Computed example of a mutant assay.
Amino acid sequence: MPALKSFLSVLSLVGWTVACAHHGDGAVVPEHKRAELLEKWDQKWAFSGIASFAHLRSVKCLVEPDERYDIAIIGAPLHAAVTYRPGARFGPRAIRATSARQIPGNSYNVRAGINPDRSWAKIIDCSDIPITPFDNGLAERQMYEAFLELGSRKVVNVPPKRDKSIGARHPKLVTLGGDHSVGLPALHQIYQKPITVLHFDIHLDTWDLVRFPAYWQSEQSRFNHGSFFHTASREGLICNSTSAHAGLRTRLIGVNASDYTKLSPEQGFTRQPVYLSIDIDVLDPATAPGTGIPEPGGWTTREFTRVLRGLEKLNLVGADIVEVSPAYDNEGETTALAAAQVVFEVITSLVKSGVAEDLGRGYARSDGGLAQVRSGQLTKDEL
């Protein structure tokens, strides 16, 4: 009898194992059961879940070649090209963590009259480029290849309003840095021809390295977060007659302002494809202390948000948000929080620029904006 009981116990265990294996190996859940499970468990809270950007679906797009999207978040965790404080390789993780308050179902942007996550565009988080920390030359190559791969895929939906524009059939990549050198490979993947760049930064990032002591230079020394726009210009990636800097307050080299005054004029960009390159240090250190080279006297988050909202009618083709260095942030994570808000505003403008309807700006046009104008709460210029 003991032997029989043992045999029956083994049979029972085998049967349970087979049943479990069958259940987990392609078993089909009935539709009514799936609907019940979704209703019961498919809620999102800001404080729960895996840290993708704004709770978007997360995919390792570089190992999923069939994955398609219209707008993709991509992390570029590099800080080996900085010239002062390191730490920006942790920026993508910090920005994702502080974006947790942004939930797709709760993301209606009142000023734009749109929920970017519930519009025409498929938006996903494509995870991070696995950038080596050991070799800047190899890191640069990895980013070139990754951005080219991710930016070359077919879109899911052509934006209704821009179906014939130059960028309509290219996905838009929003890069989370990493130091600002990631902008160089990111620009390469756009169209392989000159485009307009709007550069928000303390610094010019147009250093010509030949103006620095040349004894200890190498070919790789050109790849740093202060020279990448100079390199991009020499490689024919930037339209020098239409691109512009904004937020500058750095000290310059030498005894005059030639570093700035020799730059190209700041006009004529509104009809061009436009790439936004945003260094978080454009904000004042009181707002965003967690960055590599802080300088006092910058914009507040509110001021910069207002600037970004003024760009929504441009033909935006991509963006980077860089130089978030969480090791120098405060306990409230205000730098990463500001960067997450910047990403939200940029994505909103990317989506809105492709919407067929002429949606309102500010708190206007759709419900009550005109009444606010009549009452004096808003000026017509704010609509």
Rank of each mutant, 00 (worst) to 15 (best):
V10T: 13
V14N: 01
T17W: 05
D25C: 14
D25N: 15
K33N: 06
E36P: 02
W45I: 00
A46Y: 00
G49I: 01
L56D: 06
K60S: 12
C61V: 14
E64F: 11
P65Y: 03
I71Q: 03
I73T: 04
H79Q: 06
A81F: 08
R85Y: 04
A88F: 07
I103E: 00
N109C: 06
S119M: 06
I124S: 01
D125V: 07
D125Q: 07
A146L: 02
L148S: 08
V155I: 11
V155L: 04
V158W: 01
V158P: 00
P160W: 10
K161Y: 00
G167K: 01
A168C: 07
L173W: 05
G178T: 05
G178L: 03
H180M: 04
P185C: 09
H188G: 00
K193A: 11
V197R: 03
F200W: 06
H203A: 08
L204H: 03
W207Y: 13
D208H: 11
R211L: 12
F212L: 15
P213S: 11
S218T: 15
S221E: 12
R222V: 15
N224W: 11
F228G: 06
R234Y: 02
G236Y: 10
A257T: 10
L263P: 02
Q267A: 14
G268S: 05
L276V: 06
D284R: 06
E295V: 15
P296R: 09
W299Q: 08
T300M: 11
T300H: 09
T301H: 13
T305S: 13
G310Q: 10
K313C: 01
V322A: 07
S325E: 08
F344P: 00
S349C: 12
V355R: 04
V355D: 10
G369P: 05
